[in-house]
Design a protein around this nucleic acid. Structure first.
Lengths: 230, 230
DNA sequence: CAGTGGTCTAGACCACGTG
DNA sequence: ACGTGGTCTAGACCACTGG
């Protein structure tokens, strides 16, 4: 009982939930009551419980109070890193190789992803990321040029499009989809694996407030692992 | 300039960072200065900037101040759901089928994952999760029985081990690893796919403070997508 | 309507880490 | 040593929502 830090109160409440003082589905006492019990300001209790709510342990609603959630559904989070950083952080030497760069009218499947209503010219990029001179990941990217002014003058034969975009074009939202797929000929050749090998795919689409900026698929080699802490 | 909510101040600071008022690598003005500028209490500025720090946009250190991070490295997070909820949330009917349950001395590869130093009996579970009576995911789990008292009496032929564990045994930490792998005979048979099909694997190991509780691999069918918002 | 959480303020003290 | 963020307090008012 050192001080009434919100952490210590968070932990105390956490332990009481785990111990079964407040079973799942029941309500915690109100903030005011807990504040009195722990001898601290209501603000501090509020902060402690908000922290538990962020972790998904409890659910809060005005008027009805703070309820212990039925099941512990925890969140896992990871940092979306540049592939260059992924390679360098594991002690490898990073290399980048632009395979193709074309401007073309977007295929309909891509128009849908980029949310383009009319026919527009988009940029299509295929590139290879290397670790210690071996293939690490294959990138297939479409860029909405209107949403990324200046990209046509960017030195994309040296710097990966992602790296340029992250620096120059802020985005506000995005979705990521992870999946597994068998390697087609194109990816197999680029990554130097057999056709049909199990690849790890990361699809990402990002928007500014108004418009979609880019959609990309990263194909990782079968031995790739995406590690996440809980 | 509606009200001085910490959200509105967060957004204002966010926009100024994106607009380039404070380029990457530079420091923001101190909290006191910003509070004066926005005409609010320092506490409110503090909360706004802490929110930006959680998102990874800035880095804070005492004495040296708040620095805009070099590269926009955003965090993505997702909720670790029960497979039952994954199925039900997509409008499917959930089913569970226990394939095998044995107690045995743990193989060395599993002992390492469970951090068991001596030879101990562990529980090995293989199970199938169904969506609309079709295979959805195959589960291969090892449980440290000492860390999960009561599991030997749990009705694991009806309730998935994960569901029982989540309810009964709290954990404090864990790691998740995502990858792709070709289906071996065992998984291919269970999931009704061809041997060699590209499966999506989710490995998870969870601990209590002291000891490892369980390690599990979930094998998903090739069409599975894990969707994450940024 | 009334009870609950959500948030702001003003002031204070503390902890850390750089110079 | 001292400047910066981290946090606590006490009090206040507001916003949502269930009865």
């Amino acid at each position: 009982m050192t001080a009434n830090t919100y952490q210590s109160i968070r932990d105390a409440i956490y332990k009481r939930i785990v111990a079964g003082d407040w079973p799942a589905g029941t309500n915690l006492p109100g903030e005011a009551e807990l504040a009195q019990e722990y001898g601290c300001a209501r603000t501090t209790v509020n902060r402690a419980i908000q922290s538990l709510a962020r972790e998904g342990l409890v659910e809060r609603k005005r008027k009805s109070g703070t309820r212990v959630k039925e099941l512990r559904s925890r969140r896992a989070s990871f940092e979306i890193q540049l592939i260059r950083h992924q390679v360098e952080n594991t002690g490898g030497a990073y290399g980048y190789h632009l395979l193709s760069l074309t401007s073309q009218v977007s295929p309909s499947s891509i128009s849908a992803k980029l949310r383009l209503t009319d026919k527009r010219s988009v940029m299509h990029i295929e590139a290879l990321h290397l670790k210690d001179n071996s293939p690490f990941a294959f990138e297939d990217r479409w860029v909405n040029v209107q949403a990324a002014p200046g990209i046509e003058d960017a030195p994309l034969e040296r710097v990966s499009a992602n790296e340029w975009l992250v620096r120059e074009i802020p985005y506000t939202n995005g979705v990521v989809s992870l999946s597994a797929a068998a390697a087609q000929e194109r990816e197999a050749e680029a990554l130097n694996v057999n056709v049909g090998a199990a690849l790890f795919l990361l699809d990402r689409t990002t928007w500014d407030d108004q418009q979609t900026i880019t959609t990309v698929t990263i194909f990782h080699r079968p031995e790739f692992r995406l590690k996440i802490e809980i």
